[in-house]
Nucleic acid binder design. Structure first.
Length: 105
DNA sequence: CCGTTGACTCTTT
DNA sequence: AAAAGAGCCAACG
């Protein structure tokens, strides 16, 4: 375990395919922790917001959440990736991504 | 080491 | 539906 907490977040995040989204809680769980908020912090400090798909991370209730470059921008990007957004919300049951084999990240 | 903060989440009003 | 409370944990000063 040499990677820092945020690096693990980014690495895991890169597994989310285009057109799909995940949640802070899902990432935390995949990392075997309950640090939902720490995940958010990691995203906030994300060095390259577009290189790492942090825009594909939303809240567990389907709301967009927040974004360092602005929520509107985040919504725009998601739409561009083919995700339909209804009234500031995403249908997770339709676009949600399930992580697998999160060991050894 | 302790207290605060935060792109969170779940439960209870 | 909307708000409030409690719980979680890494990072920072």
């Amino acid at each position: 375990m040499t990677l820092s907490f945020n690096k693990r977040c980014y690495k895991l995040l890169k597994k989310v395919p285009r057109g799909k989204v995940t949640t802070y809680g899902a990432i935390a769980k995949a990392l075997k922790t309950k640090a939902y908020r720490a995940v958010g912090n990691a995203m906030n400090k994300n060095p390259f917001p577009l290189k790492v798909p942090c825009h594909r991370v939303i809240k567990s209730n389907g709301e967009i959440g927040d974004f360092s470059l602005g929520i509107e921008n985040k919504i725009r990007i998601l739409k561009r990736e083919g995700i339909k957004i209804k009234n500031r919300k995403v249908d997770i049951s339709k676009y949600g991504h399930y992580f697998q084999n999160t060991q050894n990240l």
